[in-house]
């Protein structure tokens, strides 16, 4: 992991003193495992990098999925909709920032959100909302990019799809 770059995928995206920690997949997997109310947020790039199949694997481990943008179409194509709900990303994160929100299932807000398949710059923005205004949430990013506004994030590995998928397998292995 040490060789993974801690450089924002969009080079100028340096938000401030608190930057996301590049974290080993196994640690991220353990964080998700420990979460009481995790939510996997799948973005419109979910079909890139082979992420969709891994997201479904995570979903099958019982972690509910919010599909943003047009990601819901990808899940429908795959025939996996069991615990997948469509969400408008900014609407979802606006709700997530409210500790009193009842959640997508009406059972209360979440304690850990995991981003995958993200439209990089958009998710970077909403991760900033969470970082700055939602102290009750842990935000993890498991895209093949370094996300400076996440609490824990993968490093840049977007050019090595196989390595990236192996990292996702490590995460899944912990669940």
């Amino acid at each position: 992991m040490a060789e993974l770059k801690m450089a924002p995928f969009n080079a100028g995206n340096v938000p401030g003193p608190k930057m996301g920690r590049v974290t080993a997949p196994a640690v991220i997997g353990k964080m998700i495992k420990r979460a009481k109310r995790p939510l996997l947020i799948c973005g419109s790039n979910i079909e890139k990098h082979g992420s969709i199949d891994k997201a479904i694997e995570i979903g099958k481990k019982g972690i509910p999925i919010a599909a943003t943008g047009n990601a819901i179409v990808a899940f429908r194509k795959k025939g996996y909709t069991d615990n997948v709900k469509y969400a408008l990303l900014t609407d979802l994160v606006n709700c997530l920032c409210d500790p009193e929100w009842k959640g997508l299932d009406g059972k209360g807000n979440y304690d850990t959100v995991i981003f995958i398949g993200s439209l990089y710059y958009l998710v970077s923005g909403v991760l900033s909302s969470i970082k700055n205004f939602a102290p009750h949430l842990k935000a993890l990013a498991i895209d093949p990019y370094y996300q400076p506004n996440a609490e824990m994030t993968f490093g840049d590995i977007w050019k090595k799809q196989d390595d990236y998928l192996a990292m996702l397998d490590e995460v899944i292995g912990e669940l």
Binding site: P15, G16, P17, K18, T90, V93, N94, C97, G125, V126, S128, S129, K131, N132, F133
Partner: peptide, 9 residues
């Protein structure tokens, strides 16, 4: 307003 700061400083 729902804010997504681009810079924390």
């Amino acid at each position: 307003p729902f804010y997504a700061p681009q810079c924390d400083t």
